[in-house]
Computed example of a mutant assay.
Amino acid sequence: MRSADPLSILLLEDQGLVRAGMRALIQVCEPLAAIQECSSFDEAVERASNHHFDIAFLDIDLKTEKSGLDVLRHLRSHDEDTRVVMLSGRSEREVVMECIGAGASGFILKDMENDGVFRRALDTIFQGSIFLPANVIGRGAFSPTAASRPGSIEGLGLSGRSLEALYYLCQGLPNKTIARRMGIEEGTIRKDYVPKLFRAFKVLRRTELVVEVARRGLVIPRPPQEADRPH
């Protein structure tokens, strides 16, 4: 997640006071981040069409027909590789899983009881890990026991190109985009790397894989070529 350049961040939130508070907290965690704010679907899409963002924080529940989830779907349909974290006051598991299935790589509740919890969520995201609500990574997680070494990818039997594929999957990218970034055929991602990763984490779906990575607190190493990729 880290690079030599400051992070470019898109913040979509239709309530001005809430947006200002979120911006302030983001700047506490990432003082050098370049943050662009918007309050609607149309504004977010316009910003994304004119600028590449490393991370987008998208409020799901906008007071318009189009939601933050629609912005996420737009980004993925246009092959944008922006890492997307959803913001919501709702914590229902089906809502979180729908967002993950659409390509989100994080979900933060806006009604957390204090700023400290929200800051810890942001820290998790900026460290390159995945933050999900407790009701998703707790009792409903997909592995019966915790990882023997939380935060470590050792022992998974993954290295090299498999870890690259895992990194991109955790960013919510579709197979086509992952294949292009890795310089291989899309079929290789679908038939080789994805099944191998599912076996390693003992899951059956992408959504389950993302949840399991979040539950273990894993930070997947950034592929070397990402550090040199222009924004």
Results as ranks from 00 to 15, higher is better:
residue 102 A to M: 03
residue 101 G to T: 03
residue 113 E to F: 01
residue 91 S to H: 08
residue 176 K to T: 14
residue 191 K to I: 12
residue 64 T to V: 09
residue 158 L to G: 04
residue 197 L to K: 08
residue 121 A to F: 00
residue 169 L to M: 15
residue 116 G to E: 15
residue 230 P to D: 14
residue 223 P to I: 12
residue 144 P to K: 14
residue 161 R to D: 05
residue 8 S to E: 13
residue 96 V to S: 01
residue 57 F to L: 09
residue 103 G to I: 04
residue 213 V to R: 02
residue 67 S to I: 04
residue 55 I to T: 13
residue 226 E to Y: 00
residue 222 R to G: 01
residue 198 F to V: 08
residue 105 S to L: 03
residue 216 R to G: 05
residue 66 K to G: 01
residue 190 R to Q: 13
residue 160 G to E: 02
residue 163 L to W: 05
residue 161 R to Q: 13
residue 45 V to G: 06
residue 39 S to N: 12
residue 88 S to Y: 01
residue 169 L to D: 05
residue 200 A to Q: 06
residue 88 S to N: 04
residue 140 G to W: 14
residue 47 R to F: 04
residue 44 A to C: 00
residue 201 F to G: 10
residue 134 A to V: 15
residue 227 A to R: 15
residue 184 I to D: 07
residue 199 R to L: 07
residue 55 I to N: 10
residue 76 R to A: 02
residue 9 I to Q: 11
residue 71 V to Y: 03
residue 25 L to H: 04
residue 63 K to W: 09
residue 158 L to P: 00
residue 136 V to I: 15
residue 48 A to H: 10
residue 220 I to P: 05
residue 116 G to M: 11
residue 231 H to A: 14
residue 47 R to T: 06
residue 188 T to H: 09
residue 210 V to T: 04
residue 86 M to F: 03
residue 123 D to G: 06
residue 150 P to E: 09
residue 113 E to M: 09
residue 228 D to N: 14
residue 230 P to I: 13
residue 178 I to R: 02
residue 102 A to I: 01
residue 215 R to N: 09
residue 158 L to M: 10
residue 32 L to W: 09
residue 215 R to T: 14
residue 62 L to D: 01
